[in-house]
Simulated assay, not measured.
Amino acid sequence: MDTRHIQYFMAVYEHLHFTKAAESLGITQPTLSQQIRVLEAELAMPLFDRIGKQVVATEAGHLLRLHGGKMLHAEQDAKNAISELVAGQRGTVRLGVLPSDLDFQLVPLFIHFKSEYPNIQLQARSTLNIQEELLNNRVDIGIGLKGTSDKRLVQIPLRSEPYHLYVNVASELASRKEIALHELEHLPLVMYPKGFIGREIVDKICREQGFQLTTVMETSSAISLLQLVRGGVGVTIQPDGLLREKSLLSDIIAIPITEHTPLRHLELMYSSERYFSNSHKQLTKWLIDYFHGKKAE
């Protein structure tokens, strides 16, 4: 049932006069009469009785007036909702981020986003499989490690981050300004388990240099790793940009790794075929600015 036919019907129902209804709609009376006949044929019921020059709504007409009004309101609500979505006033933005970045980097940006778009629901989820999440339409935007080029995705390089060694301030290493990669071989390391992206980046560089790392404890949580460093259990290797908030480093020292420094290359990704609302576009811009060291505005 075409809502245009409902609009025509509602005009006739209101005026109970085809000529006046046609004038209010800006169409000719024969056109209006034809469209009402089309609607009546579709419903297999007369909507109006024509008694001489008088037009009277039938019982079917009264029912269509009740439900047709709801249809027109629903259509207008949908148009309004989409207009608001385009204007960035409502809707949902789904962001996929690597777990450690979600824990340590992006909360200030989320707070800024909420202040600018109070009616937008931001769903940030931690995931290691950013490209898969995007291609399966589980997230709208992703921040992850540079992956294989895919024509279905827009992939924007963000930055390359060197890995540093994080040690407790009480450690004998705390006074070091830098540390060579080969010196990591015999340190008491607390690291992600093998197979985790961050662990593989570091392990790969070490293998290329002819040695393997030895861990005293492993955990899948970056927060736990830092707590273990604070507790004096060991030292850990994490990206330099991971801990921007200096308050998180109050009792931890970050030491640059020299000679064959492990690097991670971050990129922002989203589907090349998805429609983006203003809020999606703005968050994308803020994320790019954030990782390029600019303030969100």
Rank of each mutant, 00 (worst) to 15 (best):
S24Y: 06
L106D: 02
P118N: 03
G91F: 09
G61V: 02
R50L: 09
R50Y: 07
A41Y: 11
F104S: 04
A41W: 03
K114P: 00
E116T: 15
L16W: 00
E75T: 02
R94Q: 12
G61L: 01
L47P: 02
E84T: 01
H112N: 05
H73P: 00
Q121I: 06
L95H: 02
Q29L: 00
L66A: 09
L64R: 10
H73G: 00
Q35W: 04
A44I: 04
E40T: 06
L85T: 10
G91T: 07
F104W: 10
L72E: 11
S115L: 11
T31W: 05
R65V: 03
K79G: 00
N119I: 00
H67W: 10
S115F: 04
L106S: 03
Q123A: 05
F113S: 08
L102K: 13
L95Y: 01
L98C: 02
A21Q: 12
H112K: 13
P30A: 03
S33D: 00
L39Y: 02
I111T: 13
G96T: 10
T58G: 03
R50T: 07
Q34K: 14
Y13K: 12
E59R: 14
A87N: 15
Q29K: 14
R50K: 14
L63W: 13
F48V: 07
G26V: 01
Q34T: 09
D77G: 04
V93S: 09
G61K: 02
P30C: 01
L106H: 01
R50E: 10
K114F: 02
Q76P: 00
Q29R: 15
Q105M: 15
T19N: 12
R50P: 00
Q105D: 03
H17K: 12
G91N: 06
A57P: 15
G26L: 06
G88M: 12
L66Q: 11
M71S: 04
A21T: 10
V86F: 10
L47C: 00
F48Y: 09
L25C: 06
E40M: 07
A74I: 11
A81K: 08
Q105I: 12
R94L: 00
S83L: 14
S115W: 02
T28S: 14
S100H: 11
Y117K: 10
A21Y: 09
Q121M: 08
F113T: 02
E75P: 04
L98P: 01
D101W: 12
I111H: 12
N80S: 02
E75Q: 13
P46C: 01
T28A: 01
R37L: 14
T31K: 08
G96S: 04
F113E: 09
N119T: 12
H67Y: 15
K70Y: 05
Y117M: 11
S115N: 15
I82F: 15
L64W: 08
E14W: 01
G91I: 03
H62I: 04
A78H: 13
L72A: 06
A44V: 10
Y117R: 13
M71A: 14
I82N: 07
A78Q: 15
L32E: 06
F48N: 03
E40I: 05
A78K: 15
K79R: 15
S33H: 12
L95V: 13
T19H: 10
D103H: 09
D77R: 07
R94N: 12
E75A: 08
G52F: 08
G88N: 07
S115Y: 07
K53T: 14
V97T: 12
G88R: 09
P46R: 04
D77M: 13
